[in-house]
């Protein structure tokens, strides 16, 4: 049981870490909190489900199509929906409130579209659900492949962010948007890029998770919430922290559901979140409170 929980925790945590990395990039660069983030994940899961059913193409190959589309849609959402709010905002606080409210509306709009098309039923499909034996435990192959994909993409993403010029631009804006503007960085361009990247990463997470998890149109909220908790616990904008905390969240969830009760995972995660807020509100890896 321990090994099983460990394996399913690691595979789940890999995807959580990836998804949280997307949100932390999005939030720290654009300074707008996206409550509709998880909807991208669920929407991607549904589109893969439909296309896999229709054409029988591997979900991992479909990701090559879904992820760029998600990037484009997410980028457009920033340019069309959020830019007017950013321009209008008189203070960072006003922007924060407006963007929260706006993306809260977005959440219901996207969820509404999904509900309209797919209803509120639980959905799943079978792909690579071949048991693989690792030591004493069996794990489905799709979980392992998804985990591998998450680790590879996460590592590449982290490397790009730390080593490339564009990555440095994004990090500069996340640390100090005013200063970044002074050295000639187009902050709105960077924020749009970050939004697109976040949407793309969320969509990839959705594709990976859909291969082994049952999902519904109303589940986006839960993923948004988990990603938010990871981002806050790690410290906003701390990418490596988000990766570690995301992994930890997956493990906690797996162990709680194995040893305690599968129905208590969110409650336990929330208890951890509450504790983190009380002890270290600036985040476990964060240096100063924002």
């Amino acid at each position: 049981m321990f090994l099983f929980a460990l394996l399913s925790g690691l595979t789940l945590g890999g995807v959580y870490a990836l998804v949280a990395m997307g949100l932390t990039i999005q939030y720290s660069v654009s300074r707008t909190m996206n409550l509709g983030y998880g909807e991208f994940l669920i929407a991607a899961a549904f589109s893969v489900f439909v296309m896999f059913g229709a054409f029988g193409i591997s979900p991992y190959i479909l990701a090559i199509l879904v992820v760029p589309v998600a990037f484009g849609v997410s980028w457009l959402i920033y340019r069309v929906m959020l830019m007017p709010i950013v321009r209008r905002a008189r203070s960072p606080l006003a922007l924060e409130i407006d963007s929260l409210l706006l993306t809260f509306g977005l959440l219901f709009a996207i969820m509404g579209v999904l509900l309209l098309i797919f209803g509120s039923n639980y959905t799943n499909y079978y792909y690579l659900s071949v048991p693989v034996r690792i030591l004493d435990a069996t794990v489905a192959l799709n979980r392992l492949v998804s985990f591998g994909a998450a680790v590879i993409v996460g590592a590449i993403g982290y490397w790009l962010l730390m080593r490339t010029r564009t990555g440095m631009v994004l990090r500069a804006v996340s640390v100090d948007p005013v200063g970044a503007r002074l050295v000639g960085i187009d902050v709105n361009w960077a924020a749009g890029l970050a939004y697109g990247l976040g949407g793309a990463i969320a969509a990839l997470g959705g594709v990976l998770i859909s291969t082994y998890m049952t999902f519904t149109a109303e589940m986006g909220v839960v993923f948004t919430m988990k990603a938010l908790i990871v981002v806050i616990m790690a410290g906003v904008g701390h990418v490596l922290g988000a990766l570690i905390a995301g992994m930890a969240l997956g493990l906690i969830e797996a162990f709680v559901s194995a040893y305690l009760d599968p129905g208590l995972t969110i409650a336990v995660i929330y208890a951890v979140f509450l504790l983190a807020l009380i002890i270290r509100p600036q985040g476990i890896f964060g240096r100063v409170a924002r």
Partner: peptide, 22 residues
């Protein structure tokens, strides 16, 4: 800061629902 409160309340109903169900 307000953002922490918003995020906390965002997931609170989900947590309470799960606790009561359990």
């Amino acid at each position: 800061a307000g953002i922490y409160f918003v995020i906390f309340t965002f997931g609170l109903s989900e947590m309470v629902r799960q606790l009561v169900t359990w």
